[in-house]
Design a protein around this nucleic acid. Structure first.
Lengths: 233, 233
DNA sequence: GTCTATAAACTGATAGAC
DNA sequence: GTCTATCAGTTTATAGAC
């Protein structure tokens, strides 16, 4: 299952020459993403996915060996991308505060770009943790987490972040905050609470950067200017 | 469905005189709570619930008319309790900052006390939003949200909170933060990231109070002492 | 109040025609 | 690559014996 990854996919796409880049297989993945994110993996049936792309359920099994293989293909790239992004930003030659701002922005952008995949990773985390086939997923998230912690430690060493903050609670809280914030941003207008709100992604990003920085900045630095995020190549 | 509420329940319990207060019906609710919170409502089968309490699936329908009625009974009390608690704290005669600290603490305590119910309310929110039978649930959450906002507005008027914070984003972020924080606290040890962490509820509470207050306090107040929460009757 | 037994629909997945 | 047809098992829910 895990061997049939993005490489095979890229090859197929290149060959197909589809203008929209969306062959049936991609449509299946898109429909499954939507269903898994909205109703959960366990509560989604292969028939619902098939119906969404106007195909009979049996035909899905020409493209994928199992329902789990569909799930795997949806979440793998997103998780590895998140890990690579975090590691890359942590390795930049810049101040810790600027790297943190950059990481918040880039994470939030990625979360909104591929929200369904990240929502699934978050919602089904207990399933992934129990499944040996998805161990790579948990490892990728651990690597991303470690990159965040490294930046935090740097900032404390530089004296820009409070030395007394709890690394673990701070980072895991921020990561969950961004994941759920992105989910709300994309999907939850229409709840009674969300009645009058609509924000741009940039506004949301500014909010989270401010919220986080005010919490973790060293004493006395509270009202210094917030650094601009780094521009990635 | 919605008519068979806590009143009927209390009556039954009083009559039963069960020492542990746990008749079969309560055991069914407890098993369903665990399953719904862990695997989701849609992914849980009535047979699994029945197996957990060593009863055949058909027997569940003596106690509940449908699977949804089980869900309803699990989430109703928790949601109404949360609303009442928020309204009560918001109405206290005290400073806004102290009320906010109290609300964070009491919410976190309630979240851990009845975590499964709150986890279900959060995870199945899209389902609840679509269902007319659960409209009361969304209304209760809106009322709780409004109570938080009222405290925030008070604090801004008193000059203890920053006047430029976004009421909506701030409160919805804090509420999600506490919900997910409680969920992690109770269940997520064992994830790769969670390896070495174990905290007391009080420590967790202090962390969130600090994290939140540093973010929303008016300029210059960052390092003032954090007020003790009010003691509720 | 729990059981047996079952209905009627749905589940993930397969075989083979086209 | 999609279809038809189907398997074996499971789903929510019901009827009626005990």
């Amino acid at each position: 299952m895990a061997e049939r990854g993005s490489k095979a996919r890229a090859g197929r796409n290149a060959r197909s020459g589809n203008v929209a880049g969306a062959d049936r297989r991609d449509l299946i993945l898109a429909a499954a993403s939507r269903r898994f994110a909205e109703f959960g993996f366990g509560a989604t049936t292969v028939r619902q996915i098939a119906d969404d792309v106007h195909v009979l359920s049996g035909s899905l099994y020409h493209h994928f060996a199992t329902k789990e293989e569909i799930l795997d293909e949806i979440v793998r790239e997103a998780a590895l991308e998140q890990r690579d992004r975090s590691l890359r930003i942590a390795a930049l030659a810049a101040g810790a505060e600027q790297k943190l701002v950059t990481l918040v922005q880039e994470d939030l952008r990625a979360l909104t770009r591929r929200l369904e995949a990240y929502t699934i990773i978050f919602n089904e985390r207990k399933f992934f943790r129990r499944s040996a086939d998805f161990a790579y997923l948990m490892q990728a998230r651990k690597a991303a987490y470690d990159a965040w912690v490294a930046i935090l430690e740097e900032g404390i060493a530089e004296g820009v972040f409070r030395p007394d903050i709890d690394r673990y609670l701070t980072i895991s809280t921020i990561m969950r905050m961004l994941t759920n914030g992105a989910d709300w941003f994309m999907h939850e207008d229409g709840s009674p609470i969300d009645a009058m709100a609509h924000y741009s992604l940039d506004a949301l990003c500014d909010f989270y950067v401010g919220f986080v920085l005010r919490s973790i900045r060293a004493a006395g630095r509270g009202d210094e200017a917030i650094p601009r995020p780094l521009v990635l190549d």
